[in-house]
Amino acid sequence: MNIFRLAGDIAHLLAVIILLLKIWKSRSCAGISGRSQLLFAIVYTTRYLDLLTNFVSIYNSVMKVVFIAASYATLYLMYMKFKATYDHNHDTFRIEFLLIPVTALALLVNHEFSVLEILWTFSIYLESVAILPQLFMVSKTGEAESITSHYLFALGSYRALYLLNWIYRYYFEGFFDPIAVVAGVVQTVLYCDFFYLYITKVLKGKKLSLPA
């Protein structure tokens, strides 16, 4: 565990908490893509199946359980409790366009052709693009609430910090996992446009709105 990895995990945890609090406090999930949240629930479920087969540390197990539980809690709030506030007219990204290629890629490019390994690879690939329905929704409505921007910034920072962690580990531990690194780069690149808007607008107190 190095500082980048820890900072990444904290950013990830913060993102998940911000989202749950935003929905809970405002009693509304307006502006949030249920499709992205569904993809994240699939990501955590398929990746953290190793909770049942490998014990690493208390920290590791607790974080995995928290991410799985929070993703299902978010789905529950969006699709059940605050369903009336779910903005499904703007949440129209076709997730099969992500799920089908990601499944094919996981079957073709993996470390080992076993069920758990393919599910892990699938979750890494899916995570890299899971935010697209959310970004699509923001671009479609042309704006995002500040709290939604903070959520997106924290979530995007998490994988960017993991990239620094992998650079550190490559130099100091000789560790290199091309699947995670390439997917992590793709994931971070997808946020670049948003990061730019966040820094130039939201941090200066303005609402995140896109040019028409």
């Binding site: 990895r5 995990d9 990830h12 190793d50 490998n54 690493v56 540390s57 590791n60 974080m63 995995k64 991410f67 470390h111 892990w120 993991y162 560790f175 996992d177 995670a180």
Partner: peptide, 10 residues
């Protein structure tokens, strides 16, 4: 080893 690293990272 790398297999253990995989389970360690989140």
């Amino acid at each position: 080893d790398d297999a253990a690293d995989k389970h360690d990272e989140l």
